[in-house]
């Protein structure tokens, strides 16, 4: 696998991370391409896959932070952790968890919560890798992930979005 192929294997996840952060398709495209160019022109490239993964997504995240800084919107990058755990999340009654509903609910989260969710669930980082990237303890990653998902599920359950029916109709073999 050459450098392009190695990067290409992260193409979709880089875009998914970028769109989760920015909520802007054009900006996401620019961020990913900027990230790819920086990665290809770097003099020192991590060979170890976890280190490479964290390095790659850190480049993208820094590019997004630079964009916020240039637009004087860095203060928008907030975590706004939710308060006490809502027991309704734990009981988890019927929820409509599909891609469209999740996309709408994700967009409503504070950027910091979108960040941690996207790093784990879209970028596919392990907690330890996210901890290195964010420069926080693994335990803090674990806490932030669970709280961000709690906030996401609460938004899903409180939304009026009607999930699309699967074309497959839930068919299983």
């Amino acid at each position: 696998m050459d450098q392009r192929e190695r990067l290409e294997s992260y193409r979709d996840r880089l875009y998914g991370y970028a769109i989760s952060l920015s909520q802007d398709p054009d900006l996401s495209r620019d961020l990913v391409q900027e990230c790819a160019l920086k990665a290809l022109s770097a003099k020192k490239i991590p060979q170890d896959e976890p280190a490479f993964r964290a390095w790659l997504f850190r480049i993208l995240r820094n590019a997004f932070l630079d964009h916020l800084r240039a637009a004087n919107k860095l203060a928008d990058f907030t975590l706004e952790e939710s308060e006490d755990l809502d027991p309704d999340v734990w009981s988890a009654e019927e929820r409509m968890v599909d891609a469209v509903t999740v996309r709408v609910a994700l967009a409503a989260l504070p950027t910091g919560q979108r960040d941690i969710i996207a790093l784990i669930d879209i970028a596919g980082l392990r907690y330890a890798e996210a901890a290195v990237l964010l420069d926080i303890p693994v335990g803090t990653v674990m806490s932030r992930v669970s709280r961000a998902r709690q906030a996401l599920l609460l938004r899903i359950s409180g939304s009026n979005v009607t999930p699309l029916k699967s074309a497959q109709g839930g068919r299983r073999r």
């Binding site: 290409e8 880089l14 998914g16 495209r29 990913v32 988890a92 968890v97 891609a99 999740v102 969710i117």
Partner: peptide, 25 residues
């Protein structure tokens, strides 16, 4: 609840779906 979380993770992964004409470089 675990199934809901698993479902949520699958739905989040669906977000990693760039436009068809998207080029990495």
């Amino acid at each position: 609840t675990a199934a809901t979380l698993s479902s949520l993770k699958s739905a989040l992964l669906e977000q990693a779906d760039p436009p068809g004409d998207f080029e990495l470089l």
